[in-house]
């Protein structure tokens, strides 16, 4: 052991001095470089991971919004289809009702016209009859009067 100490000049004072040197290096590096750098890197990685997390959340939110949007659009389309079908049916019903009414009205007008024509015909026959009677009477009167004149002749 003594030979090793004397050969390598092992000196506990220098060992302590070197230990102190290392202590200074450790302290300075830890306080001024490693600790702040580590803190900065951690903060940055936290920010990055938070950003990634936010981006994921936003993506999920966007997906949910798209799903909602699709759902609403689908629902609206269904409702619109139902309304349109209902409107079509109502229109068909109204149309057929209106055609029916019109037919009835036309029928009524035709019936009314026929009746009016019948009445007019009857009235005309009546008038003609009256006219014939009056003409017959007038002709009879004239004939009677002409016969009387003939008789008066000498």
């Amino acid at each position: 052991m003594d030979s090793i100490i004397s050969t390598f000049h092992i000196d506990w004072k220098i060992i302590i001095a070197q230990a102190v040197n290392f202590g200074v290096v450790f302290t300075v590096l830890y306080i001024f470089a490693l600790k702040p750098l580590n803190k900065l890197m951690q903060e940055r990685s936290e920010k990055i991971s938070k950003g990634v997390e936010d981006a994921k959340q936003n993506e999920e939110l966007l997906k949910a919004c798209r799903a909602d949007y699709d759902e609403v659009i689908k629902k609206a389309k269904n409702e619109a289809y139902v309304f349109s079908e209902k409107a079509k049916k109502e229109r068909e019903i109204e149309k057929s009702a209106s055609i029916e009414n019109t037919k009835k009205e036309v029928e009524a007008i035709i019936q009314n016209g026929k009746k009016m024509m019948e009445d007019e015909k009857v009235k005309m026959v009546e008038d003609a009859k009256k006219e014939i009677v009056s003409l017959t009477m007038l002709a009879t009167e004239k004939l009677i009067s002409s016969k009387k004149d003939l008789n008066d002749l000498p």
């Binding site: 001095a17 070197q18 040197n21 200074v24 290096v25 300075v28 590096l29 001024f32 470089a33 750098l37």
Partner: peptide, 17 residues
């Protein structure tokens, strides 16, 4: 040399800080 090494590391650490 060790003192020089310490000085260099200290300067670098402070510069980095």
């Amino acid at each position: 040399t060790s003192w020089f090494a310490v000085a260099i590391i200290v300067v670098l650490a402070l510069a980095l800080r």
